[in-house]
Design a protein around this nucleic acid. Structure first.
Lengths: 340, 340
DNA sequence: CTGAAAGCGCTTACAG
DNA sequence: CTGAAAGCGCTTACAG
């Protein structure tokens, strides 16, 4: 079943069939109708490989996620992102090819991604700083967009959230509620997110006239385990609130507090960042900064497709809004007052 | 950069280059060496689309996961599986194309999967019963393997774990420790896993001379929430142990018990099924049946590639072993005794 | 063992 | 608006 077959059935040439499939305007209504009918009757789907070869584009995009294996499993961020990308591709009639990679991927994988000749562009999520893939992509002029603002962003399409402002917002919330010794468990500080959220924390302390204290800052690494360790380390110096810079770590923090018999929010307040599906189901439900992850995936796809179809358009930096979701882990909030 | 270029550089024909790339035995050592050198020097990667068109295969496989969105996020099973598939593909020099779908996918997606002409075969995970994709695949004779035994499995390649035996093992463990009123929170019972694990539970009760009691069986749906609801529902009838048929539900169960002030394992024992990364980090660490998810993904890939390359070989049913991992949620176990 | 050539299923100037 | 034809980059009988 190929163009030839359809052409014969519709009584036109291969060229015409190709034109109606690709929505070319240069087809008479009559011809278009005849072809359309055969198309739907036969359930015809053009061969992507052939199209790729002839047209130079495939309607398939690559999604590469260079995250450590363990983070991939424990952080719902990734399934969420994949879902956003997948569904947007779907509705735009594209397909997605997936590469999961340890942060230091091998040259072989990069080569595969670059030269397989079957991909119109790529989305990179959570790249490391100075990702070699990024250089290669730029050099070969392959369209790509990053999820998460990269270090040198001027000529790179990216989608992100304002991590700095979001973090600041979360910590200001704490400060306004009257907390004085606000600690933080950061994300890995060799990532841009990690840095940005820490900067937001500092800003907020500054704006609130609170003293920064290095003992109150614990460097985590996104993992639940580091949230646990962080809490254990912080407790002896008695913070009255902790800003945990990524929700998965929050689970470890909750556990550490429970073990020490410290109650949330009575004895200590917790704010998170992400608002993943589980965050609302912690005990107590977590007050946290919401990041629209699925939406980030979709917007990344839209941006990529746009960059593929209009290479002349300028680079795009999309910054999606963040939102503080108040639940009951900070006490004193409207929500928890109602509960009492 | 294409075969032609390489051929020129190596002083041979296009055909010869193609042969060395594809490991054809019909090449002189001398020619092979010359080509090989140019190949590595130029970092050449053949165009998949062209290969596909010419050879009829692409070295790319499709992975389709028809799970509800919410399950996709909350159940680490999926990232784990994707990881297994991805890494096995990688080491076999294949790529993976991903389709996430709500269980009732549209005809359009099925068509895309079937006819895109770029996929050598597909892996389907967690298919629903009577999945239309499966029928279509069979009809068109496209190689595929399922992760999770399907209802009518005779002519279908699948990878699974012995869910029945695993569940039985878990419940026998409880029975041997002396628990008498053993309840269960099942997986969705419109899935094969759900049915199989329930069957294992029943078997174990029977073998232990325990009375089955319908009030002790609560139908969950894999979600944490259902684990919570299940526990709430079960508590009033005072079970002394619960077999929770999938670890994500276990988190809800733990929460419900904590809210009611019921201690694990002192007041009630819990066994799970899956052994996902978080299972070891619950408080107390969960005793559960380990399922080698990543490995299942890899074996699925191996099986698929084998089926693609050797269509004449018989259908394969792979059943990976399960293992009871004893931690401290059932009390009385070696592990918890040591801790005391 | 090796090369010239046909062909995979499309797209897209080009001529009409 | 439409069709004949060239061409995308490979693979693979076929002949030697």
């Amino acid at each position: 079943m190929n163009l030839e077959t359809i052409a014969k059935l519709a009584g036109v040439s291969r060229s015409t069939v190709s034109r109606v499939i690709n929505n070319s305007p240069n087809v008479s209504d009559e011809a278009r109708d005849r072809v359309q009918i055969v198309l739907t009757q036969t359930n015809f789907q053009p061969n992507i490989a052939a199209r790729s070869l002839a047209a130079g584009h495939t309607q398939v995009i690559g999604l590469v996620i260079p995250a450590t294996i363990s983070r991939l499993f424990s952080d719902p961020f990734f399934p969420l992102l994949i879902q956003g990308v997948s569904s947007a591709c779907n509705s735009r009639d594209h397909s997605v090819m997936l590469w999961l990679a340890e942060p230091e991927y091998e040259r072989r994988m990069i080569r595969q991604i670059l030269y397989n000749g079957i991909i119109d562009g790529v989305i990179i999520s959570s790249a490391i700083i100075n990702d070699p893939l990024v250089d290669a992509l730029q050099e070969r002029n392959i369209p790509f967009v990053m999820v998460g603002e990269p270090r040198a962003a001027q000529h790179i399409n990216f989608i992100d959230v304002d991590n700095d402002a979001g973090a600041q917002r979360a910590v200001m919330h704490l400060a306004r509620l009257g907390y004085k010794r606000i600690a933080t468990i950061t994300c890995a500080l060799n990532t841009e997110v990690g840095l940005a959220r820490l900067a937001g924390y500092r800003q907020a302390l500054y704006l609130s006239g609170l003293q920064e204290e290095s003992a109150l800052i614990y460097e985590g690494d996104f993992s639940t385990e580091s949230g646990y360790q962080g809490a254990k380390r912080l407790l002896p110096i008695k913070p009255d609130a902790i800003f945990v810079a990524s929700d998965p770590m929050t689970q470890g923090t909750y556990r550490a507090l429970a073990e020490s018999g410290i109650r949330i929010p009575e004895d200590i307040a917790i704010v998170g960042f992400d608002d993943l599906p589980f965050s609302a189901h912690l005990t107590p439900p977590l007050t946290t900064v919401r990041q629209p992850v699925i939406n980030m995936g979709s917007v990344a796809v839209e941006t990529l497709i746009d960059a593929i179809e209009h290479p002349e358009r300028p680079v795009r930096h999309v910054r999606l809004p963040t939102e503080l979701v108040i639940r009951s882990s900070c006490g004193l909030s409207l929500h928890s007052q109602i509960k009492k």
